[in-house]
């Protein structure tokens, strides 16, 4: 099975990632992956596409949750550039799902914040899109969240090695996105 993330480390102590020169705290035991957001209908991610960190959150039951201000400042995309699909609620608060896909950036084996030369993996979000929350005082989520729905729909295998603090994500040979 092709490997998307190989021995991606997570840490039992705080760390940080840098996005556009900004240092962002990562808490202990958080799994950080790097993604790129793009419009739908693109077969190949443009090479200069912005990369942003996302926490792999198995408690998230959607594809991707991201704050509007982070979408704008990290990718240059504003909600006006992506068609809204429907209004949704996140923990009872209003949000909007937008017609966008995102790509998972393969890591250099053993490294979290360095990338392999292999092509990014496309998550086709279909009618669910990505969920954008308002950048209000609660500032939720603190970092974008990559949820289990994306992994399930893409039929990816997730392996978390708690002893070595490593994560591997593999994909099966593709015969169809669903079914």
């Amino acid at each position: 099975m092709p490997v998307l993330l190989r021995k991606l480390p997570f840490f039992d102590r705080p760390s940080e990632v840098r996005v556009r020169g900004q240092a962002i705290r990562v808490k202990p035991d958080q799994i950080v992956v790097w993604i790129s957001v793009a419009a739908k209908g693109i077969q190949q991610l443009p090479p200069q596409s912005a990369r942003l960190p996302a926490i792999l959150d198995t408690g998230c039951n959607h594809n991707l949750l991201i704050r509007r201000d982070q979408l704008l400042s990290w990718t240059g995309m504003d909600i006006g550039t992506l068609p809204p699909l429907r209004r949704v609620r996140v923990h009872g608060r209003e949000a909007i799902s937008l017609a966008a896909n995102f790509w998972l950036q393969p890591n250099r084996p053993g490294c979290r914040d360095e990338f392999a030369a292999t092509a990014p993996f496309l998550f086709e979000t279909l009618h669910d899109g990505i969920v954008v929350t308002a950048d209000d005082q609660d500032a939720f989520p603190r970092l974008p969240l990559l949820g289990l729905r994306a992994l399930r729909r893409a039929k990816l295998d997730l392996h978390i090695d708690g002893r070595r603090c490593r994560v591997t994500i593999r994909r099966r040979r593709w015969f169809g996105m669903f079914g």
Binding site: I79, P83, P84, L85, R87, E94, D135
Partner: peptide, 15 residues
Amino acid sequence: ALRALLEADPPPMIT
């Protein structure tokens, strides 16, 4: 921007 986000209605054809 916050108002725009929360008031954004999907386009009629999408709905």
